[in-house]
Computed example of a mutant assay.
Amino acid sequence: MDRPAPPPSELLEIAIDVARDAAATAYRMRIEGVSVAATKSTVTDVVTAADRAVERQITDALRRLRPGDAVLGEEYGTADGGTTDAPARVRWIVDPIDGTVNYLYGLPHCAVSIAAELDGAVVAGVVRNIHTGEEWTATAGGGAWRAGERLRCSTETDLGQALVITGFGYDARRRAHQARVVAELIPYVRDIRRLGAAALDLCLVAEGRADAYYEKGLAAWDQAAGGLVAAEAGLRIGGLKGLPPGPEMVIAAPPALYDPLHEHLTRWDAAGGP
Rank of each mutant, 00 (worst) to 15 (best):
R267F: 00
L104M: 10
R190W: 07
A19N: 00
D191T: 04
A70H: 03
A183Q: 12
I192M: 14
A138M: 04
V101T: 14
A124M: 03
I130H: 02
G167T: 05
T42D: 01
P245E: 08
L12W: 02
A49Q: 14
Y76M: 15
H131L: 04
R66K: 09
A176H: 11
D201K: 07
A220C: 11
A212K: 01
T25E: 13
A183P: 01
E248L: 15
E32F: 00
I97L: 07
E215R: 15
G242E: 03
L235R: 04
A197H: 04
R52Y: 10
A53E: 14
G142R: 04
W145L: 09
R180K: 14
P247K: 09
A53V: 08
I237T: 12
L202Q: 05
I192C: 10
L257K: 03
A53F: 05
A179T: 09
S9P: 01
A115F: 06
A144L: 04
V34F: 05
G208P: 08
G169S: 03
R63P: 04
A219W: 15
A206E: 03
T100N: 05
A88F: 13
R146M: 07
E135L: 09
A198F: 09
A138S: 01
L185H: 06
R64T: 13
H177K: 05
I186Q: 14
R267V: 13
R209A: 15
R128K: 11
H262D: 10
I58S: 03
P67D: 03
M29S: 09
L265A: 03
A212F: 07
K216G: 05
G227F: 02
I14Y: 02
A212L: 08
L195E: 12
R209M: 12
A15H: 00
G272N: 06
I237W: 05
G81E: 10
W145P: 02
T266D: 05
T157W: 00
A70E: 09
L163E: 06
E232M: 04
T39L: 01
S9D: 12
L235Y: 09
P187A: 04
L257R: 06
I165A: 02
